[in-house]
């Protein structure tokens, strides 16, 4: 695997691994510690910790606060680390749910074809014509922002691309000999779907995952930026960047560091995804 990856793919893969590492070990990288002698956490500020008497508001980056502080004196570095953790975890959860729903719907469409496929295709067509971002914003504005509703609105249209790819793969595979052989041998429908068809149609789904994660992270950031996404106290890229909007004339670090981290995260996802796609799909080979 690694040896067949292009150098861009390797660099972005390493960067991505760093982000994943940062997300998994966020509490040990930046968190409140009772005892200043401990070497963990590395940064002694949690994402929420701010003392109105001692922490400086909107302080420029220095040796204590690597990325500066925000408008109520919270450490921006700690918030970026925890924002990475929150948005990665959330988008992975959205991705998993979308993959499950999308492949199941796509499998049903591709396997049974006919009228069922036609009806579901029309429903998908109608949903994919919805102004999704506006719909998401409206849902969140009305029902309030909590993770449950956020999860629901993010999945609402996200599963569709997985369903499309799975359906297309099923249509390609369904009349091939190994499937017919399974049928003749008397395999049940579910066995044919889950044992024969699904494992053979996973490549396009796997290729889609990094791009899907990137777009979920961007969408989530957009919702939070407008104040309708993640709950307001949670460390998130959108919330940090919204602060950057309010204080852009005095606090460049609020735009540069969270924006840069978000950019690197989505860029490494996209570049890694493109490299993996080129590796898995020989038709696009040089």
């Amino acid at each position: 695997m690694w040896r067949r990856l292009s150098w861009v793919g390797r660099v972005s893969g390493i960067l991505l691994a760093l982000f994943v590492f940062m997300a998994l070990f966020a509490p040990w990288i930046a968190g409140d510690s009772k005892n200043p002698e401990d070497w963990l956490p590395l940064i002694k500020f949690g994402p929420e910790s701010a003392d109105i008497f001692t922490s400086p508001f909107l302080a420029a980056p220095d040796s204590a606060h690597l990325f500066g502080t925000d408008y109520i004196g919270r450490d921006v570095f700690a918030r970026v680390v925890h924002a990475t953790k929150n948005s990665l975890l959330f988008s992975v959860a959205v991705m998993i749910a979308s993959v499950i729903i999308g492949t199941l719907v796509g499998a049903v469409m591709g396997f049974f074809a006919g009228r069922l496929d036609m009806i579901l295709s029309r429903i998908i067509e109608v949903i994919s014509n919805f102004p999704i971002f506006l719909l998401q914003l409206t849902f969140l504005a009305i029902f309030g922002s909590n993770y449950f509703i956020l999860f629901f609105v993010m999945i609402f249209s996200n599963w569709i691309s997985y369903a499309r790819y799975t359906r297309a793969e099923f249509f390609r595979l369904r009349n091939l000999e190994f499937v017919q052989a399974a049928r003749v041998l008397g395999s049940s429908r579910s066995r044919i779907i889950f044992r024969h068809l699904l494992p053979n149609s996973l490549t396009p789904i796997l290729v889609l995952i990094p791009f899907d994660l990137a777009s979920t992270i961007i969408g989530l950031g957009g919702l939070s930026f407008l104040g309708f996404g993640e709950p307001i106290h949670v460390a998130s890229f959108g919330e940090l960047l919204n602060q950057a909007r309010e204080h852009f004339q005095r606090a460049w670090w609020l735009a540069v560091f969270p924006g840069g981290a978000l950019f690197l995260l989505t860029l490494s996802l996209a570049l890694f995804g493109a490299a993996v796609r080129d590796m898995l799909d020989p038709r696009l080979g040089k």
Binding site: A214, I218, G221, G222, F225, L241, A244, R245, F248, Q249, R250, W252, A255, V256, G259, L262, F263, T266, L267, L269, A270, L271, A274
Partner: peptide, 22 residues
């Protein structure tokens, strides 16, 4: 790819911060 994967609000805020008279 970089342009396509950069959230537009990050671009806008960086432009605003560096060219908008702070």
């Amino acid at each position: 790819i970089a342009l396509y994967s950069t959230p537009v609000y990050v671009v806008a805020l960086v432009l605003l911060t560096f060219l908008g008279g702070g």
